[in-house]
């Protein structure tokens, strides 16, 4: 429950054609500890993932106990112009981990 969150990993193409649908894969190492296990581990959960493109929300996820450790998510975005993506995970203690990626269209 101490320290900072792990740096997230993002797989996203660096370039795309206008109108192309790109696949974005995200992974962050985190135990997603529910506090329900028999070994008595303390609760430590990520609660949110927010994905923004050019400061507009693309996808906002809220996680409950059933989301696996090391949350992994895949989704698809249609590219119209060169864009900056921002990915932010937040845990129950209010800590966050952030990543950015730029996709050039042209």
């Amino acid at each position: 429950m101490t320290g900072t969150l792990s740096p997230p990993r993002i797989r996203i193409p660096r370039q795309a054609r206008a109108g192309e649908v790109i696949e974005i894969r995200t992974l962050i190492e985190h135990p997603m500890e529910t506090g329900l296990r028999q070994d008595g581990a303390r609760r430590d959960m990520l609660t949110r993932l927010l994905v923004r493109m050019n400061n507009e929300t693309v996808l906002a996820a809220e996680f409950s106990n059933g989301t696996s450790a090391n949350p992994y998510h895949v989704f698809f975005v249609r590219m119209e112009r060169t864009s900056t993506f921002e990915f932010t995970w937040t845990d129950e203690a209010g800590r966050s981990a952030r990543a950015e990626a730029r996709v050039t269209v042209g």
Binding site: L36, T57, V58, A60, E62, N65, G66, V77
Partner: peptide, 14 residues
């Protein structure tokens, strides 16, 4: 607990 996740989607998704 039955909850797994909820995802808010927008038209920015393809």
């Amino acid at each position: 607990t039955p909850g797994v996740a909820r995802f808010r989607l927008t038209p920015l998704l393809a």
